[in-house]
Design a binder for these strands. Structure first.
Length: 789
DNA sequence: GACCTGCTGCGGGCTG
């Protein structure tokens, strides 16, 4: 049967009313799957590919035919919910299917309307769904009594995240509370391994989840990469880098290879986006920016992103604020009639951010310098090109960002990547000479082309989120036997990596802090401290947040600052792309009063440690041992890649991952964050002196002793918990503090969780075994230097 | 050498 005729009468009329000529292939497939099977669905298509309608056309049809049925839509952002709410309201206008939304900005009255008359479609955040369990726990079976469909938008956002496990737990509790088994329809733009998404939705029956993906549209991708070298006054020109190997020859036995001296701009590879660079047009800069790499990047961005609507992503808020400051200054010097550059990130007030979003939609030339705030699918119109400062942390982020451009049919996706590297000097380490940021940028592009994305950490324990859900379930049900808690959260729910023994320890830890207690009949209930935690409205989120100071100018909020970075009165800082002078600080109201400033400004925001996959590091190694030059490199980057490869091969890293110098050995195990940390902890455990950089470990020892140590690592039977016990920082997530006892120095649960979630013993041992194999038998502590050319 | 997300219920006072 044709898909259109499977839709209800009201939906068919709505499609005519909206003037849609035809259904897209994913919509046809989805309508047929929903109508004629009982499968769950994952609909994978790029942003603006018609995913929402693919899910909701058949759902609304079912709701129109059977008004007792209900659907909920869970979205990660309030803004996304508001977008979708308007689309669905228009669709349902004459059909008689109610559309509700529930999030923090929705009025009490609207929420009350849904509570009095539940039904139709409800659009909600995970946190608001949590608030339903906490505040209307007993009414949940009535509120969701007709639940037939659960739509999850931007599924990829939830897959590898604390918030995703929270959502999975809420949905399992919803099934338990209502006794219903609604169908899942998940929407996603960037999906790595579909099986992981299937497992997330239906851990007991992943095969029942059908994948519908949009194969029809392939898109041209244009990527260009340019590297800028830091080191203000005496920095080397790229063409001089190769001569540098003379300088370090004493330590590293690296000698220059004869190479035709290629000036920066002489070669333009075809099919790549080439950043234009006109040194002569550059205006004189004030002293505080002279020679900075970001300055060089700002000049390229000033010309390349002057026209159209664009996004430039950076890895930190501070970088983007500095970049905006430089761009505004360039605008002043060049007397621009119009400055298209604006800033958008999580420490800027909601008002200013929504102004930026409207400017992006307005069609006036606008380039937003942004963090991941503009990565998700909220509607900001057609984006011409994307910029990226420094390599992103993951392939997934790169793909998501690139996908924001070229939304119109036939437009290419365009990405200009700028990489900042340290110019080499006599103090450079071998790691510096491998130019790891450039190589990592390339690795990310190559993995994107190979269609690889980071897998989700499916085996993680997520004890912090388990604590959160335990408290919420106790709030919902009053008192409940411990076995029932375990059954609901860890057997039916998603915390399946948690054993009964570990859960018992979690409960004991909470009991020791009066967060929970046991009634005479053995049931668990909230203690005094627990009641206080759960009755605060800030309880609903599963993730932690920073306490911040508000920044106000003339009664309007500009944004937020870290309490530890509130500059004293009279000082100037950057926020929302402007300079602000501190007039007054109100400690009680946690507010900084400011006026526009002019002096040199400073900037700082909060941060967390990064995490890089071993697959990316492995790809970096492949690139270093390869001899091809991808077309997306600009001539300077080609030269730096050539230098990095020379350093790699002259150091003999292709044959043996060790670099031996007098009294020191540097080991490149080619592992990501987890593996490198594990090796570091092995060294701490055996009192082996070691220093770490982003790629290598440096030991002060001889080859003989290191070989013995590596053998010890390979054969070690030390437990991962013992190694995790040596971690200086043990708490990472919101409720981790409840899992330890400082007085008794009992950190077992945190060590147990960190051992599973943050270390990789097998990977570390394998790297040690591989290294042993690569060390030539009977080698001396100083290998023979390679012959000179 | 990081980034982002989210948030109640109730009572008092005011307006039409």
């Amino acid at each position: 049967m044709p898909a259109f005729s499977l839709l209800s009468e009201g939906v068919q009329k709505a499609i005519f009313r909206m003037g849609w000529d035809e259904l897209r292939p994913i919509q046809v497939e989805s309508i047929q799957a929903v109508s004629s099977t009982t499968d769950d669905l994952i609909i994978s298509a790029r942003t603006a590919g018609g995913k929402t309608e693919a899910a909701f056309l058949p759902i609304i049809s079912e709701l129109e035919r059977d008004p007792k049925k209900q659907a909920i839509y869970v979205g990660p952002l309030k803004a996304l919910i508001n977008d979708q709410f308007e689309r669905l309201e228009r669709l349902c206008e004459d059909i008689g299917v109610a559309v509700h939304r529930w999030h923090g900005d929705v009025s009490q009255a609207a929420k009350q309307r849904f509570r009095k008359n539940p039904g139709g479609i409800l659009l909600i955040t995970p946190e608001s769904l949590e608030s339903n369990f906490c505040n209307y726990g007993r009414a949940v079976p009535d509120l969701y009594g007709g639940l037939a469909f659960i739509v999850i938008d931007e599924l990829h956002v939830f897959l590898n995240d604390v918030r995703g496990l929270h959502l999975a737990s809420l949905l399992a509790r919803l099934r338990t509370a209502t006794g219903r088994n609604p169908r899942y329809i998940a929407l996603s733009a960037t999906l790595g391994d579909p099986d992981e998404a299937r497992l997330y939705l239906r851990p007991d029956n992943p095969a029942s989840v059908r994948l519908i993906s949009d194969q029809s549209r392939t898109r041209e991708v244009r990527v260009g990469l340019r590297t800028s070298l830091s080191g203000s006054d005496n920095r080397l020109k790229p063409s001089e880098i190769l001569n540098l190997f003379d300088c370090v020859v004493g330590e590293y036995w690296i000698r220059p290879k004869p190479l035709a001296d290629a000036p920066f701009d002489s070669v333009r590879p075809p099919d790549a986006v080439q950043p234009d660079h006109d040194e002569e047009d550059e205006p004189e800069e004030a002293d505080d920016t002279k020679g900075s790499t970001l300055d060089e990047i700002a000049h390229d961005i000033a010309s390349a992103f002057q026209e159209g609507t664009n996004l430039v992503f950076g890895n930190s808020r501070a970088t983007l604020e500095e970049l905006a400051d430089k761009l505004h200054k360039i605008g002043e010097v060049q007397h621009w009639a119009y400055d298209p550059f604006v800033v958008h990130h999580g420490s800027i007030s909601w008002d200013i951010r929504s102004d930026v979003e409207s400017r992006l939609k307005s069609g006036r030339p606008t380039t937003a310098l942004c963090t991941s705030t503009l990565e998700l699918g909220i509607d900001i119109g057609d984006i011409r090109a994307i910029g990226q400062i420094d390599p992103p942390w993951s392939v997934a982020a790169f793909v998501q960002r690139l996908g924001r451009s070229g939304r119109k049919e036939g437009d290419p996706s365009i990405m200009r990547q700028y990489v900042r590297e340290d110019a080499p000097s006599r103090e450079s380490s071998l790691t510096d000479l491998l130019f790891p940021r450039l190589i990592r940028s390339m690795a990310i592009v190559e993995l994107m082309l190979a269609k690889w994305l980071e897998p989700r950490g499916a085996q993680r324990l997520h004890l912090s989120t388990l604590v959160h859900q335990t408290l919420s379930l106790l709030r919902q049900s009053g008192s409940i036997p411990a076995a029932k808690l375990y059954q609901t959260l860890c057997v039916v729910g998603p915390f399946r990596a948690v054993t009964p023994q570990i859960y018992e320890r979690v409960l004991r830890s909470l009991g020791g802090k009066d967060i929970i207690e046991q009634s005479p009949n053995g049931d668990m209930l909230l203690g005094l401290a627990g009641e206080a935690i759960v009755s605060n409205y800030q309880f609903y989120a599963s993730f932690a947040s920073n306490e911040m100071f508000a920044v106000n100018h003339a009664g309007e909020k500009i944004g937020e600052l870290l309490p530890t970075f509130v500059p004293p009165k009279g000082r100037v800082f950057l926020l929302a792309g402007r300079r602000w002078e501190v007039l007054d600080i109100d400690e009680n109201a946690r507010t900084v009063i400011v006026r526009p400033g002019t002096k040199k400004a400073e900037v700082k925001f909060p941060g967390d440690p990064g995490d890089i996959s071993t697959r990316i590091i492995a790809e970096m190694r492949r690139i270093l041992s390869d001899s091809k030059f991808p077309a997306y490199l600009d001539p300077g980057s080609r030269l730096i890649l050539e230098a990095a490869r020379m350093a790699y091969s002259r150091a003999g890293l292709g044959r043996c991952p060790l670099l031996v110098t007098v009294g020191k050995i540097r080991w490149y195990p080619w592992l990501g964050t987890k593996g490198l940390l594990t090796l570091h902890l092995f060294a701490l455990h055996t009192k082996m002196s070691v220093k770490l950089d982003e790629l290598s470990l440096e030991f002060e020892t001889t080859v003989e002793d290191l070989s013995k140590w590596l053998e010890g690592v390979v054969q070690s039977d030390v437990s991962a918990e013992t190694l995790a016990g040596l971690m200086e920082i043990k708490e990472f997530e919101r409720f981790d503090g409840m899992l330890k006892d400082d007085a008794k120095k009992d950190y077992y649960l945190l060590d147990y969780a960190n051992a599973r979630d943050r270390l990789d013993i097998a990977e570390a041992k394998q790297a040690a075994a591989d290294c042993l194999e690569a060390i030539p038998a009977g080698s001396a502590s100083r290998p023979t230097p390679p012959p000179a050319n």
